[in-house]
Design a protein around this nucleic acid. Structure first.
Lengths: 127, 127
DNA sequence: GAGGTATATACCCGTCAAGGCATATTACTC
DNA sequence: GAGTAATATGCCTTGACGGGTATATACCTC
């Protein structure tokens, strides 16, 4: 919908979510948060095989989540903010939604002078 | 990592990302943003098959993204904020990261009194 | 250029999830 | 209770993806 097809790959938010869905890739991004790392660094810190790390980095790079620079035989990977910013933007309307909800809850609680102890937790309807 | 195993399912952020990765499910969530809908409503608005909609809703409900209430033969689904809030929380450190980045960029631009026209766009390294 | 280190890629395989179709289930109407 | 509307579920097939192993590539050192 909001993505652009380019040699069979979907670009934009469309794919960013799918990329982030992989736990190891999220772990890699979290690692890169503090500083750039080589493939070997990630391999050791996450206890992954080297090919696995390389493949994930490939996916992340293709989607713009990371970029790399060469230092001798090593490639140092670092974060790029853009794709994650897009994800964040997708969340905006939902943030409005739940802050509205929390406000309502707060007002509800405010209404009661002293919060009476609840006997049975209200279960969510599960038909 | 941060999830809880419960009858073979992973709960928590762990799975929430995977659930959000599906474009149709994101579309459903966006729909529910404005108001609750029946399965048939979603079916029509998203041009999906009824079983497909039901299955996606099942996944969303199991993960706590939506809840339903019964009205005659129809089930009306509505949003639940919690899981999306968790996703949002995961993004927090990254938000710090990119706001730091944008600050740096801003300061960089401030340094130049008049921004000189750039001749060649700096290409991102693609080894 | 031989040997070693660091990373990328190709290929194969198992798994898993999404869609289609048919069918079951639930609730309403008469 | 028969008929019908709305939704859920089961089964099957297909495609995509991630991991493993082996191999290719790039770069450095001597």
């Amino acid at each position: 919908m909001t993505g652009i097809y380019l040699n069979g790959y979907v670009w934009g938010v469309e794919s960013s979510f799918a990329i982030i869905a992989e736990p190891h890739r999220r772990a890699i991004l979290s690692l890169l948060l503090s500083s750039e790392r080589s493939v070997g660094d990630i391999e050791r810190e996450l206890r992954l095989s080297q090919p696995s790390v390389s493949k994930h980095l490939r996916v992340l790079r293709d989607a713009g989540f990371v970029e790399s620079r060469i230092e001798a035989q090593r490639r140092l990977y670092r974060l790029r903010p853009e794709p994650l910013m897009e994800l964040d933007e997708w969340l905006i309307p939902f943030r409005r939604f739940w802050s509205k909800h929390l406000d309502a809850l707060e007002q509800h609680l405010d209404k009661m002078d002293k919060v009476p102890p609840v006997k049975g937790k209200k279960k969510h309807e599960q038909p």
